[in-house]
Design a protein around this nucleic acid. Structure first.
Lengths: 342, 342
DNA sequence: CGGGTTTTCGGAATCGTTTCCGAAAAATTT
DNA sequence: AAATTTTTCGGAAACGATTCCGAAAACCCG
């Protein structure tokens, strides 16, 4: 049943040529006449020959696979990123091995340390925990690496291509909130060092931060938003705006506020980050910052694949995208309608 | 810099043993004394030796990789499925190659036809288009396959493990809607043959279907829901309930109804399928049917890995999970509060 | 048609493992 | 201590491709 396993030699024998010639036929190689090529190709079809990938890889030292290590495929913008990477890879004849690190420091280190065992030609990693020893491991990985970076200032000696935002997400949000006249601005996020820059922008934008207006939850989930809303609502003096670390938290906030009878945006304006599809579904629709997930991911993949193809070593690129603020109902009341900042 | 590439022979030489012995040390092989093993392991550490996966695969004929082919990683429950598969695979020392078929018939056929080129030991496929020739290709794939199946009745001669729902999602929804006294029940989905069974259940539950109450959109997106709401709203005689093919469509419906001033659930009850996390965020919260995505995926992975490990051939399993209806505000008004059906 | 180029082709080595099988060493028995 | 059994180890042959290099065939042109 399971066809006995036909090798390049079988093809050569049946076609009456040498194995070298068959190999040339497979790989569109030079130095082979059109007629013999078609004859061989036909025999290949006939015998159902499929080149053994392992043997090819062993000889050529390329696997046509890259690994993509993300925190959790189920969260927020990660599916967009995974999709963009897969599309780019496919366009270059590459496949993608998915790895979830769970935003776990050990897992992130492990994937980089053991990358050689992974049978891949390169790695795209989106670190969350970003343990201190990660850069060091990346530098000695021995395999091309692209880093998709959100919210962390990276050491520029890193031997990897880096694609990130210009770190202005936070500033965009804060500027907007101040511009619409809010003064008691709160922050809702996870631990401050997880997506560091989002929080730091908050501090930078204020003369002094009121510790009671900062809520740190456990994760990026809707629940964190819900809890944050409860917390802020319980305050003697409520904030008049909340800058949420991402859209999930923002949506959680808005929904809970609604349940508590707090009017958004009249009493409290809420702005998130990510600009995922749910921002337009939530009611009120959520103002948010587009962080260009697909574009970032696509570029990270392109850089990696180029590096692999051309065997570039050193000469690392660092590309920054510009985030864009999209104003919706959660920060500007319906009357003024939605508008888009370019 | 890039350590010259150290092979098993280097290790053997340095450790003063034969390569066969080193191999045994790596693979916890039999017939090797504890002391030589530890000595070799130490040398391996010292030299930074990493076994070449391609060479191993070439010899052993196993790649420790499986492929996961899904319509689109960005949609609905697919991230959950991808996550569950990756977890199960990791637990068995396997890696997962992600493939998006875009629900495209050609892509689905292609991945099965070319599975041998993919350097994997098995395939988990979640077909959407399900072209007629797919079963045939699956049967002659020559590689173990698990099928994650939603909404299609499969030919039982399929030579693959199948994990699916008991096809009762639709009936659960319809029973519920009828039980709460709705009589003009509409359906909102994609083309009827995409997730066939969800629609067929609709037909089955009614004495006769009123064609004007059936809306087919282009996809499973929020937009489809929005458009469906517009459509139903424009009808001379509106439905008093809508059964949506999935939660995205349900949420789109509910939101648009709200904008149009149609009260949910008082005027129109809406029930979706998937029970994703947004059902509890939407307002009103969406009644939905849990389709056990993670469990289904995990089992599909386990069956596949078992088949690979034990080299089972034939003797295919077909496992059905029972969907569960979860009643929320979009079908039962707030007064009666939310309740859960077990 | 003969000498010189250019194309086309095949043999054999190689990539880095695993594993069979026989030999050496150690352990056990007599 | 010799004989026998059991453990431990090493050499060498695969696994299935790619590719270098030399030889044969085809082509060119006066």
């Amino acid at each position: 049943m399971a066809s006995k396993k036909v090798t390049i030699e079988d093809v050569a024998r049946h076609a009456g040529v040498g194995i070298a010639t068959v190999s040339r036929a497979i790989n569109n190689g030079e130095g082979i006449s059109a007629k013999t090529r078609t004859r061989i190709l036909q025999k290949i079809e006939e015998l159902g020959f499929v080149p053994n990938t392992s043997a090819q890889s062993l000889k050529v030292r390329l696997t046509n696979q890259i690994a993509l290590a993300v925190p959790d495929i189920r969260n927020a913008i990660i599916p967009d990123i995974a999709w963009a990477v897969e599309q780019a890879a496919k366009a270059h004849g590459y496949r993608v091995v998915q790895i979830n690190t769970a935003g776990n420091a050990r897992a992130e280190l492990e994937v980089v340390r053991d990358i050689k065992k992974l049978h891949v030609d390169g790695l795209i990693i989106m670190p969350l925990a970003y343990p201190k020893t990660l850069p060091e491991l990346i530098n000695k990985a021995g395999v091309p690496i692209s880093v998709i970076n959100y919210g962390k200032q990276l050491d520029s000696t890193l031997q990897a291509d880096i694609v990130c935002l210009s770190m202005l997400e936070g500033q965009l949000v804060m500027d907007h909130l101040k511009q619409i006249g809010r003064s008691r601005i709160a922050y809702a996020g996870t631990q401050k060092d997880v997506i560091e820059d989002r929080y730091l922008a908050y501090e930078r934008a204020l003369d002094r931060v009121d510790a009671s207006l900062v809520y740190f939850g456990d994760d990026f989930s809707l629940q964190t938003g819900t809890r944050a809303a409860d917390y802020f609502h319980g305050l003697a003096h409520m904030p008049d705006a909340v800058y949420a670390v991402n859209d999930m938290v923002a949506i959680g906030l808005v929904n809970r506020f609604k349940e508590l009878g707090v009017r958004v945006p009249e009493e409290v304006a809420v702005v998130g980050v990510d600009n995922n599809q749910w921002t337009t579904i939530s009611s009120p629709q959520i103002s948010s910052v587009s962080i260009m997930g697909s574009e970032v991911a696509r570029l990270a993949a392109e850089l990696l694949l180029k590096r692999i193809r051309d065997q570039i070593i050193g000469d690392y690129e660092k590309v920054q995208f510009e985030p864009r603020l999209i104003v919706r109902e959660s920060s500007v009341s319906l009357k003024r309608s939605a508008m888009h900042d370019a």
